[in-house]
C-alpha cells in the first residue's frame, strides 16, 4: 500500500509538472546528447582519488593553497580550456614549482573532470574547450554574432554577452547552445506585438508590469508600450534560435570563449 501511495503521488506530481521535469531530469534524448559534452561521473570520482593522492599535498583539499589559483572555483593563472589544464599537469608549470605528472589518459581525464565538477564528486563537469577557437566559431560557423553583441561589437537584439562568463555557469551556457528552449530566461522570450495603429513590433522584453511592457525592437529601439494600446501581445515559448549543430568539441570551445567574457576589467 505504501508503495502504491508513493507511486500515485509521483504520478500526480508529474501530471502537472512538465515544466519542472524538463528542468530537473532532461529527457532521455538530451541526456544522451549531453553525454557527448560532459565528463562521466565515474571520471569525476576517479579524479577525486587521483587528486587526493597526487595533487592535494600542494594545492590543498579545497584546491586553494597555491597563490593565485583556486582549482575548485575554476580560477587559474593562465589556463582556460581543458587542454590547457592537461598540458600543465603533464608538462609542469611555474618554472619547476609544479612538477610534470606522468598520468595515464584515464587518470588525467579524471583529474580534469574533478576540477571541472568544482570538487563535487556528485557534480557535473562539462567539457571546456579553447577560447580562441570558440571565438572564431562564435563569429563564424556558430552564427552567434548574428544576434549577440560582445564588447561593443554586434547587434543588440539578443542579450549582450560581454560579461556572460561572470554571471552564468558553464552548464547553463552549454545548455543554451544544446537546448535553448529549456535554458532561455523567461524575460528573454521573443515577443510579437501589434499596436492599435497597426504597427507590428518584433523584439525582446526588457521589463514588464501589469499595465506596460518595455522592449528592444528589431531596429534596436527602446519601446515602452501600454498594454491597453495593444491589439495583440504574443510571447513565444520557443527561443528564436534552434539547438546548435556544432560538434561536441566545437560546443566546448564556444563555452570556453563565453566563460572568458567577464565584462570590463
Amino acid at each position: 500500500m505504501k508503495y502504491l501511495r508513493v507511486i500515485s503521488q509521483a504520478l500526480r506530481a508529474m501530471g502537472c509538472l512538465g515544466m519542472l521535469l524538463i528542468l530537473i531530469s532532461p529527457g532521455a534524448g538530451l541526456a544522451q546528447e549531453l553525454g557527448d559534452h560532459q565528463y562521466t561521473s565515474q571520471a569525476i570520482q576517479a579524479g577525486l582519488r587521483i587528486y587526493s593522492r597526487e595533487c592535494a599535498l600542494c594545492h590543498g583539499p579545497q584546491g586553494d593553497l597555491v597563490g593565485g589559483v583556486n582549482l575548485r572555483l575554476g580560477q587559474f593563472k593562465t589556463a582556460q580550456s581543458d587542454e590547457d589544464l592537461r598540458s600543465i599537469v603533464t608538462s609542469g608549470a611555474g618554472a619547476g614549482q609544479m612538477p610534470a605528472f606522468n598520468f595515464n589518459e584515464a587518470d588525467l581525464n579524471g583529474v580534469i573532470a574533478y576540477i571541472r565538477a568544482g570538487f563535487n564528486p556528485e557534480g557535473v563537469a562539462i567539457f571546456i574547450g579553447d577560447p580562441a577557437r570558440g571565438e572564431a566559431l562564435f563569429q563564424g560557423k556558430g552564427e552567434c554574432a548574428n544576434c549577440h553583441r560582445v564588447n561593443g561589437v554586434g547587434p543588440r537584439t539578443a542579450p549582450d554577452l560581454s560579461e556572460i562568463g561572470a554571471i552564468r555557469s558553464p552548464a547553463s551556457l552549454q545548455r543554451n547552445l544544446l537546448d535553448p528552449a529549456t535554458a532561455i530566461l523567461p524575460i528573454n522570450r521573443p515577443v510579437r506585438i501589434v499596436t492599435r495603429n497597426e504597427e507590428t513590433i518584433i523584439g525582446r522584453r526588457l521589463n514588464e508590469d501589469t499595465y506596460t511592457v518595455q522592449v528592444i525592437d528589431s531596429q534596436e529601439r527602446l519601446r515602452s508600450l501600454q498594454k491597453s494600446d495593444l491589439v495583440s501581445y504574443e510571447i513565444s515559448m520557443a527561443p528564436s534560435k534552434p539547438p546548435t549543430t556544432l560538434s561536441s568539441a566545437e560546443v566546448a570551445d564556444v563555452v570556453g570563449y563565453l566563460l572568458s567574457l567577464r565584462g570590463l576589467q
Binding site: S172, R175, N207
Partner: peptide, 26 residues
C-alpha cells in the same frame, strides 16, 4: 523556488529590482 530555466532570477521576500526579470512565469 521552482523556475522555468536554470539560473533564472526568482522571487524572494520583497522586491529590490525595478526590472521584473523573473516574470509571471515564476
Amino acid at each position: 523556488v521552482l523556475a522555468p530555466a536554470p539560473e533564472a532570477p526568482t522571487i524572494g521576500i520583497g522586491r529590490t529590482n525595478p526590472i521584473n526579470n523573473w516574470t509571471n512565469e515564476m
